[in-house]
């Protein structure tokens, strides 16, 4: 069993950092004479970038929310596309 502790930095902050990483890499290639590919921001590239910034993780099947709030409170959005929330 693996127990993972998340923080605010693993949510939108991590996605922004990962996207910036992908963009910087693409800009570097453009300066080297390569084609500036606007389609470069694909899912595997962002997954790889999230891995590099240290915030990639598994997609949970079930998300439990406690208390009266009706929000996921910043849980990494990238990771719960098909997650059941209750």
């Amino acid at each position: 069993m693996t127990l993972k502790f998340l923080s605010h930095a693993d949510g939108r902050e991590a996605v922004a950092k990962a996207a910036n990483l992908v963009f910087v890499e693409n800009l570097k290639q453009h300066k080297l004479g390569g084609e500036l590919d606007l389609q470069i921001l694909l899912e595997p590239q962002l997954n790889e970038a999230l891995q590099i910034v240290g915030s990639k993780g598994p997609e949970p099947d079930l998300l439990l929310v406690y208390g009266p709030v009706r929000s996921h409170l910043g849980f990494p959005a990238w990771r719960h596309r098909y997650t059941e929330i209750m």
């Binding site: 069993m1 693996t2 993972k4 502790f5 930095a9 993780g57």
Partner: peptide
């Protein structure tokens, strides 16, 4: 993110 692998 902090990750623990437990032998359970």
């Amino acid at each position: 993110m902090f990750s623990l692998r437990l032998p359970i």
